[in-house]
Design a protein around this nucleic acid. Sequence first.
DNA 1: GTATAATGAGTAAACGTTTACGTATTTGTA
DNA 2: TACAAATACGTAAACGTTTACTCATTATAC
Lengths: 337, 337
Amino acid sequence: MSFTIKDVAKKANVSIATVSRIINNKPGYSKETEEKVLQVIEELGYHPNSIARGLINKRTHTIGVLVPKLSSMIITEFIRGIEDITHHNGSSVIVCHTESNGKKTMKYLQLLYEKQVDGIIFVSEELKEEYYQFINRMKIPIVLLSTETYQFPVPYVKVNDQHAAFSATEFLIKKGHRNIGMVSGNKEDMVAGQSRINGFMQAMKHYQLPVSEKHFVSESGFGFDDGRNGLPRLMKQYPDITAVFAASDEIAFGILSSAYTMKINVPEQLSVIGYDNLSIAEMSIPPLTTVAQPLVEMGEMATKMILEIINTNQKVESKIVAHRIVERESVRDLTNE
Amino acid sequence: MSFTIKDVAKKANVSIATVSRIINNKPGYSKETEEKVLQVIEELGYHPNSIARGLINKRTHTIGVLVPKLSSMIITEFIRGIEDITHHNGSSVIVCHTESNGKKTMKYLQLLYEKQVDGIIFVSEELKEEYYQFINRMKIPIVLLSTETYQFPVPYVKVNDQHAAFSATEFLIKKGHRNIGMVSGNKEDMVAGQSRINGFMQAMKHYQLPVSEKHFVSESGFGFDDGRNGLPRLMKQYPDITAVFAASDEIAFGILSSAYTMKINVPEQLSVIGYDNLSIAEMSIPPLTTVAQPLVEMGEMATKMILEIINTNQKVESKIVAHRIVERESVRDLTNE
DNA sequence: GTATAATGAGTAAACGTTTACGTATTTGTA
DNA sequence: TACAAATACGTAAACGTTTACTCATTATAC
């Protein structure tokens, strides 16, 4: 293998304690010894072994991230924010995708514990009791990202889904649309399911528009294919429709694609609003109007929170972050026509 | 903190050596002790500390991945393959994005060494001498993904870029196109720059088509904006163009978007072929014809290779993987018209 | 000049494992 | 029955650090 602190100590004719003090900037050595040791370190190309450090310090400078699936673009953006902050703080990240599978999640939780991560960011998924108990027993700090819990004292950062869905729907209404449908993802989904539907309904009711079964289509997930399948079904049960609220940008892309093959022009014949503001939302044709979650920033915030808990050992407050509508070209304005 | 092997040993009235043997399936204990110990482990919820294990075993079951930037979608797909195999092998991954910055790269290389990763996958970037020297001195196994080196004895997995670019161009030619342009990314890029241009030129020459300055436009990168900017420039210097080869799918999306705003119909007025076959290539409008690199599989292969090096301590062979054309709807067939 | 404090350094224990080695007990063999 | 071999365990060293303690030397104060 390569050199250890012992080699440095020997070559510099000092004790390992002194070397340790020097590389950690703890007092207790003279200018000359410092220089000598530093030079030896340089010569040898010595780098301290952080595994050994971790063992004694109980800090591994690693944080674990649990995500449902890696393929989802929204996850990618969260991770971007997370890795950014983590690396800026001299730590690194281990990402695990659970595929929303309880067994797998527990397995990864154990893995992360065994690897002694300093903290965990739990993303876009329900924090089940079993998970919480484990994390709690093992005393691993945790924060939730894009999900929440009423049951356990765990801080989170997310947008208010119902409110955001309300805003999206309201936006459509204010653009003069009356016949509005929704393609929702998995209704059972704790975080993105029912609350977005509720927001949609609430907006419709608030503006005294009828809302019934035919306005909805629920798919099994929040992906492209769900949108592709959803639109034809929705059009069939609700032919008068002029606008649709997609529960995610990926669903919206599916809708765009489906409309394209059905030769329905967006936004001339059909308006589409998405949810998330993925970075590719501006790349679609037409560019997608959507309700933005500040995804990268949310990742950053969650990371700062976990880091704060780790460093200060104190609780932090949950954060509801603001959403906003990003208007691009997929929604037609009916009001001034 | 939580329980250690000592706690288990004490509670089970055995020595820590016995406990260790049991959790590692090494011989040397009776059925009864095993049961007793296993039960205590269960009761206590004991999990071995892999930091301590790593210290003594010199295996951390962690591999490091160095990528140029995280935002690029192609990287995301590589990582998907990498994480999959890694996790299936009971290891985990630390991803570092270097932003193609030498200083940062060295910093991360040190980080990965300090964290004692078992191996490194180096993605889509030139392996500079400085990097190699470091890795070599530290004796960290490495494999290259989507990049190669003639200078150092390091295995890689990639497609033959020039060949693939040739195929893409040839595809266009066989569809009856004669006036073909190319939007290339950064020409300086070791891996995706000149060789794709060469493949394009080679195909043009092979089919006796003229090729000159006006056929090319080079941008600073391989992203969406590069495509968006590239198309107008290309159209200006080469108005007769009927087809364009984009050096990446992201560039192709930019071209699609640019064509949309310029009211140029794809593929009726302009054909576009991309490069990569990102998973979103089928989501674009129109769905993108492209030369496919098997991205996820390439990530998987690189991971299997690094794992093999780590486990067997032997060299492995580099792999050139096959590309193929994925025909979708962005290229017009001029031959039977 | 002596007592006291500050400085510069070394020694050794600790972190939580694995494992080489030693030893007592059991089993097998003749 | 006696002895060898196998089995079941324990002891202690090692992995590469950090750090509490200790101690000698030098500086400071009177």
